[in-house]
Computed example of a mutant assay.
Amino acid sequence: MEEITFLKRKAVEIRMDLLTMIYEARTGHTGGSLSSTDILTVLYYKVMNIDPSKPKWADRDRYVQSKGHSVEALWSILADKGFFPKEELKTFSQFGSRLIGHPNNKVPGIEMNTGALGHGLPISVGMALAAKLDGKSYKVYTLMGDGEQAEGSIWEGAMAAAQYKLDNLIAIIDRNRLQITGSTEDVMGLEPLGDKWRSFGWEVVEVDGNDIEQLVEVFSTTPRVAGKPTMIVANTVKGKGISFSENQVAWHHKVPTEEQFNLAIDELSKQLEVLV
């Protein structure tokens, strides 16, 4: 339980940091960063074999953020883990900063520049295949958006991963059901999403992507099946953690006002108070 409490507290702290970054920079993708925070927290503080002092260590696990626009949670976590000074978060999206609005591989801990949707999974397939060919035991994790599933390159990567039996590849879909223009089911219907991935040869598991305990349990049992890549459909809430942003499409790319920022920080602070 101690470990679970630590992860829950860390997720709240990361939400506070990313919201502060967005508020001070006056730009950012708030909703998707908040929905994916619990996933990234479990990956970086519990699951992945990484060493911030050796970001290019050959045997490290790899993480590729395919939904690159929701980078704020990732920047906050990399700074907290020590990949770069936390003070640098104050430069987010400022002129000359390397902490731009998408993952930038000039920053330690970032494997690939991403942002154009649909590229993260094919890149991760290549990394996982390289591990197999080189006899390496590292795993490759990639986080996609659900709106991103409309990209054809996703499904090309899905076929290749099954073809090469990449059981060292774990993909996650941040299934918050909202994208920039509205509901995913109105823009480009995805269901039955899990069955589609199963038909492409993947082992699929669904989880509450904002439930720390469930995430820890699922990640601890991957790969699920030898010779098959794993897909985790993580059902999340866009804008998770802040009452007035939850399930609101307007918060896909929205900066809080001073009043909203203070209300949000107050809500998150109260969440911390009960996690003792």
Results as ranks from 00 to 15, higher is better:
D186K: 13
E151H: 09
S70D: 07
G182N: 03
D61L: 04
G101T: 07
Y63F: 02
G182P: 06
K139Q: 10
Y63A: 02
S66N: 03
N104E: 03
Q179D: 08
K81L: 11
G145N: 07
V107H: 07
P103E: 06
I170N: 12
P85L: 00
I77Y: 07
D167W: 08
L143Q: 02
Y63D: 04
A130Q: 14
S76Q: 04
K106N: 11
G145V: 08
G152L: 06
E148F: 11
I123R: 10
T184S: 12
Q163S: 12
T142K: 11
G157Q: 15
W155K: 12
D186Y: 07
T142Y: 13
M112W: 15
I110Q: 10
V107T: 04
K139I: 08
L99M: 02
L129T: 11
S76G: 05
D186M: 14
D80V: 03
G182Q: 06
A171G: 11
I77P: 04
M188Q: 09
D174E: 08
E111D: 15
I110K: 05
K81E: 05
K139F: 04
T181C: 08
N176C: 10
P103A: 01
I172M: 12
K67I: 07
A150V: 10
W155M: 12
A116N: 12
P85G: 06
K67F: 09
G152P: 03
F84N: 01
G120H: 10
K165F: 01
D134R: 15
D61K: 05
D80H: 12
A150P: 02
G82T: 01
K86T: 07
M188F: 04
F83N: 03
L169H: 13
M112A: 15
G118R: 14
S93D: 06
N113C: 08
N168Y: 12
L178F: 08
M127E: 15
S66H: 05
I100D: 00
W75N: 02
H102D: 07
H119Q: 15
A162V: 00
G96A: 00
P108G: 11
H69A: 00
Y63Q: 00
K67T: 12
L78F: 07
G152F: 10
E88P: 03
Y141E: 02
S93K: 00
E111F: 15
S76H: 04
P122S: 05
L74V: 01
L74N: 01
F95C: 05
G68H: 05
L89Y: 01
L117E: 05
E111Y: 14
N105Y: 15
E111M: 13
A116G: 08
H119Y: 13
K132M: 10
S70C: 11
R177F: 13
G68I: 02
I172W: 05
E156P: 15
V107L: 08
I100N: 02
I110V: 12
G157L: 13
Q163G: 05
S183V: 09
V187G: 04
L178W: 06
P108F: 13
I77N: 00
T181V: 10
A150H: 06
K90F: 01
F92S: 00
I77V: 04
A116P: 14
G182I: 07
